[in-house]
Every structure is written in structure tokens, then in C-alpha cells.
Amino acid sequence: MSSLHGRKILLGVCGSIAAYKSAALVRLLVKAGAEVQVILTTSAAAFITPLTLSTLSKKPVLTGFLKNEATGEWHNHVALGLWADALLIAPASANTLAQLAHGHCPSLLAAVYLSARCPVLLAPAMDLDMFQHPATKENLRLLRSYGNYIFDSPAGELASGLEGPGRMQEPEQIVAELEEFFGK
């Protein structure tokens, strides 16, 4: 039995071309027996639809603070952070990494991160120059210093045509590392 069986995983999906990989990631997590709740940033919805992710996770995808504007019903970021066994952000864009590193809270995902008591795992995904920029390197250093786990970003061909680090790890590798993380 997988060490992910019965685990509650919050999956944050950020605006990156690598967001298409989140569908396979959800599928693999569910197949391993995890309960997956997806939080999709506004910019991520340009790359992958809530319908795809909700179908695979078998849960409505959360996209903002409000559940129902007419009634003022909201998604409780504190409750979400307490519910989860892990917060996995994959892909984690340069923008989101900067927000999290500096405590900015413009989205439901950032609010959940700031209130989460569970382990946080981040899978960066961006173009080569963004990944190698000193600000991004500093944000990753800060996030590690807060106790977050940062997945390696393998080198390879990027969407821009450049070659180098910045790719999001493949979903199979992320799930394998998560299983190892929970197996300890």
C-alpha cells in the first residue's frame, strides 16, 4: 500500500505552461489513494481548466476566497491549512514563489500557505532566465529557510526553446518523492 493512501493533499496549481502536468499529478495522487483538493490560481486557469482538475480529483476546484458572492460564503483558508497532510504547489511559478517568500497574500493559495501547519512542498517551474535570476534564487533560499521542501528543477528543453533548469519535475517523480517523504 502506498504511503500516500489516506493522505489529504492540497495541490496548488500556479500560472505556468507546466500546469498541464497537474492533471497527470492529480491522477497519480488519487490512484495512490490520496484525497486531493486543488487550489487553482487565476493565472493557472489560462493553462488548465477547473473542469479537468475537478473531474480527476472528484472535488470542486477552489479558485478564490469566495464560494458564493451572493451570500458571502467563503473558502476558509485556515480550515484548509489544518485539513491537509501536505500542501504541494506544482507548478510553483516565480510570481507565487516571490509572494510566499515575502508573506504577500493576494490569493487563496497564498493565504492557505501562510496558515498551513502541514509540510509544504514546492515544485518550481519557469523559464531559464527567471529561474536563474538572483531574486528567484533568493526567494527559493528564503522558502527553504522556512522549512519548505523544494523539488529540484531539472535541466532540459523549456517552452521558450531555451535549454537549462526551470522545468517542473515530472508528476511520476513528484509522487515518488512524496511517497518517500511520507514513508519516513
Rank of each mutant, 00 (worst) to 15 (best):
L140P: 00
S145Y: 01
V26H: 02
D152H: 12
A94N: 03
E170I: 10
G6R: 12
G81P: 00
L128I: 10
A19Y: 07
L56R: 01
A18Y: 07
C105T: 15
I150G: 01
A46L: 12
A116R: 02
H102E: 07
V36H: 03
I174P: 00
E179W: 07
K67E: 12
S93P: 03
S16T: 14
A90D: 07
T41Q: 08
L88V: 15
A90F: 04
D85R: 08
A45N: 08
A111D: 11
I17Y: 01
N139Y: 08
A45F: 00
G12F: 11
M1E: 06
S43Y: 10
V120L: 05
Q132P: 00
S43D: 13
L29R: 07
E69P: 12
L10S: 07
S22E: 09
L108A: 09
E35M: 11
G147M: 09
D85N: 14
E170T: 10
S145D: 08
A176H: 03
L100A: 07
D85F: 09
V26L: 09
K59G: 01
E157M: 14
R7P: 00
Y113P: 00
T96L: 15
F151L: 15
A111V: 03
L97T: 03
F182M: 11
K67N: 07
V120D: 00
G81N: 06
E138F: 06
L4T: 05
P106I: 15
A101F: 05
W74A: 15
Q99T: 09
Y20H: 10
K59P: 00
I48A: 06
L88I: 12
S16N: 04
L140W: 03
S160Y: 03
